[in-house]
Nucleic acid binder design. Structure first.
Lengths: 109, 109
DNA sequence: AAGTAATATTGCAATATTACAATGAAGAAA
DNA sequence: TTTCTTCATTGTAATATTGCAATATTACTT
């Protein structure tokens, strides 16, 4: 096959997987760090910083954006990539909740 | 290409990505939840629980194991899949640290 | 309007992932 | 020993991901 079977999983499991996919590539880990570290939120030089081609970076940004982790204006010259801090925190909560619940119910604790 | 360029990333970024990959599929999110919830740590019925074929589950278990998140005996009938709680906590720390650092340095906060 | 700078899109090649059927291996039970 | 149960491995097909060159788009500037 190759495609994931989504119908058999819960909404929470699918959501976790979608968020995790954002961090499942080192380039995206790096991009998010860089975006957050920029005072001005003007991030045209992610390409130089990360070391991948412009189309590849753009592709990674789409993945990050699809998860709702970006905000800003994406049109024209005055592009501003910003971290969507609310969404980011929300994701952090989801991960933490999952991690804590999982360990808490473990036979092994 | 298709293969990830690893040489341009830091060790921390690569480690984050490796851990995140474990959760980047809903089946693995589900499997980990289930393993942790079993009192006996005898987890032969993950297949029934998750709803994927036995070889597929075995494949997912390899991914989880490769990240160091399992421990137990994997030979013979008395198979025991257990969560490696120490490693799991360690991973949680890494995520939390990354999340907190990222948001803290954000222009947007 | 024409030029320029910044990013997105498209198309393609290489590789990775997901899923399962068939088979293999190893211990437990008869 | 034979059989059963349980899980791992192998082989294969379908799909997804990663990466870049080439091109298109967008908005600002002159």
């Amino acid at each position: 096959m190759g495609a994931s079977k989504l119908s058999i999983h819960t909404q929470e499991q699918i959501e976790m997987a979608q968020f995790a996919k954002v961090f499942a590539h080192p380039a995206r880990v790096s991009i998010l760090q860089y975006i957050a570290s920029q005072d001005s939120c003007i991030c045209g030089d992610i390409v130089d910083k990360v070391g991948l081609s412009q189309p590849t970076i753009s592709q990674h940004l789409q993945v990050i954006n699809a998860a709702g982790l970006l905000k800003g204006t994406f049109k024209g010259k005055t592009i501003c990539y910003c971290l969507n801090v609310e969404k980011f925190r929300q994701m952090q909560e989801l991960f933490n909740s999952y991690f804590n619940k999982t360990v808490a119910s473990c036979c092994n604790i």
